[in-house]
Design a binder for these strands. Structure first.
Length: 423
RNA sequence: GGCGGGUUGCCCGAGCGGCCAAUGGGAGCGGACUGUAAAUCCGUCGGCGUAGCCUUCGAAGGUUCGAAUCCUUCACCCGCCA
């Protein structure tokens, strides 16, 4: 278990510090007692995703080491949107953002402790911005931001060509003001965030120095990328959402299970609470016998348990074993099949009159987006019924094809499975 | 406010009256290899009742036998000038 002082060493070992203000000063500050720190989440969607998880878990590591978390959900900043390279954002409706604020808060809560001497606190920057007058804002905050320096910031400079609104340009002022207010009212002295937030983090620390002559710290976590340099976190359903309604826990688990070998150590360090020894050991064993996928299995188990609970993870593991175990599906009892296919996703279809063909079944189960895509998949040899390749697009599976319990196991490609129960 | 440029499929981007469901790249998807890795190679990539039909090229009208391509109006974006 990390202590006040050495938590920074742990974070560094895990590769979680991409950038920080004076490292030694931060180290001794963290050693001086329970440091109040904050991390912000903007409600730009109804759920957090993999990228946010890095911050959430980092917040938890700091709390476990005895420091005191302030979790900010950006009811105000979420209405503005920070500048990103892909271009100007579309503003979300007030009601939508409010709804998302609640959802995001609900998602964050299970990860931290709200009891004890270093209990976590939830804050919302809407509380101190909504009633702020424009004049006060410009005089008290705006005055401390030289436009020439703001223009020099990377995120802004990259947007000067394609265009950037005053709204997004001003985002950094709001986030800096958050840090200032939390510093003033709650004694917060540390902020962290993703590496893309670095400019906003330092701007806040600067503002505290200018206005309060206070000393604040900041660090950023690295942007995780795949070996080819592209971003992580995309699945067929879009982003790697934490909300089980938006991405099934089964699909979530599968994402981690399919992580590339080269990234196993890095991801174990960032996303699990396994000890240094356990991780080093897993890395060594994975490198020796990569085909056993020990690292992937541990990673998938740990992260899925953190997000969806260990009971759900047990069910998913059993489902994966049944469906990917390589054994004969016909040997599986109906109860096992049912449990596994519920995790993986399933639908029901009539067994008698109105029986559906494979093409329709592929669409019904969501394995294919359209009948055309289903037909294409079949002609490409990518469709399987009960682990046997489907070659005839006109095939209409009936009770004779069903496994125990009336189940059909449909598969598209290597890893997309769904169940159909004939009733 | 004036003038000029632009708005094309998930993204970027060609096309500038018929040969356009629309070149190319990326992403995605499938196959081969393997380990439910990576890399590579091959195929595919609007919808449907798939040798045919339907709906797409910012929106609405119009010209034409025929429009993503021409005209008009509107919306939005970019630039220059005021």
């Amino acid at each position: 278990m990390s202590t006040h002082a050495n938590v920074l060493d742990d974070l560094e070992w895990r590769g979680l510090i991409a950038n920080s203000t004076d490292r030694d000063a931060l180290h001794s500050h963290l050693g001086s007692g329970s440091v109040r720190y904050y991390v912000g989440f903007d409600p730009t969607a109804p759920s957090l995703h993999m990228g946010h998880l890095v911050q959430v878990l980092t917040a938890r590591r700091l709390q476990e080491a005895g420091h005191t978390p302030y979790l900010l959900v950006g009811g105000a900043t979420g209405l503005i949107g920070d500048p990103r390279d892909s271009g100007e954002r579309t503003l979300n409706a007030l009601d939508t953002v409010k709804e998302w604020v609640d959802k995001v808060r609900g998602q964050l809560e299970p990860f931290l402790s709200f009891e004890g001497p270093n209990a976590a606190t939830m804050v919302n920057n809407y509380d101190w911005t909504a009633s702020l007058s424009t004049i006060d804002f410009l005089r008290d905050i705006g005055k401390h931001f030289p436009v020439n320096r703001m223009l020099a910031r990377d995120t802004v400079r990259r947007r000067l060509d394609s265009g950037i609104s005053y709204t997004e340009f001003s985002y950094v002022l709001l986030q800096s003001m958050d840090f200032l207010n939390l510093h003033r009212d709650h004694g917060v002295t540390l902020q962290f965030g993703g590496s893309d937030q670095w400019g906003n983090l330092t701007a806040g620390a600067d503002l505290i120095r200018r206005v309060e002559q206070g000393h604040a710290h900041a660090f950023s976590t690295p942007l995780l990328t795949k070996s080819d340099g592209t971003k992580y976190g995309k699945t067929e359903g879009g982003a790697l959402w934490l909300d089980p309604e938006m991405l099934s826990p089964y699909a979530f688990y599968q994402f981690w299970l399919n992580v590339e070998d080269a990234k196993i150590g890095e991801l174990l360090r960032v996303f699990t609470f396994l000890s240094h020894d356990e991780i080093t050991d897993l890395e060594a064993r994975s490198a020796e016998k990569p085909f056993l996928r020990l690292g992937q299995k541990a990673l998938a188990r740990e992260v899925t348990s953190l997000v969806h609970g260990s009971e759900e993870t047990d069910r998913i593991e059993a489902a994966s074993a049944a469906l990917f175990g390589g054994g004969d599906l016909r040997a599986l009892p109906g109860t096992t099949l049912a449990a596994a296919l519920v995790e993986a996703g399933s639908v029901t279809a009539p067994a008698g009159d109105g029986r559906l063909g494979v093409v329709d079944l592929l669409v019904e189960t969501g394995l294919a987006k359209s009948k055309g895509e289903a037909r294409r998949t079949i002609s490409e040899g990518g469709a399987y019924l009960n682990n046997e390749r489907v070659t005839d697009a006109d095939l209409v599976p009936g009770p004779d094809d069903a496994l125990d319990g009336g189940w059909l196991v449909l598969r598209r490609g290597k890893k997309n499975l769904a169940g159909v129960q004939l009733v």
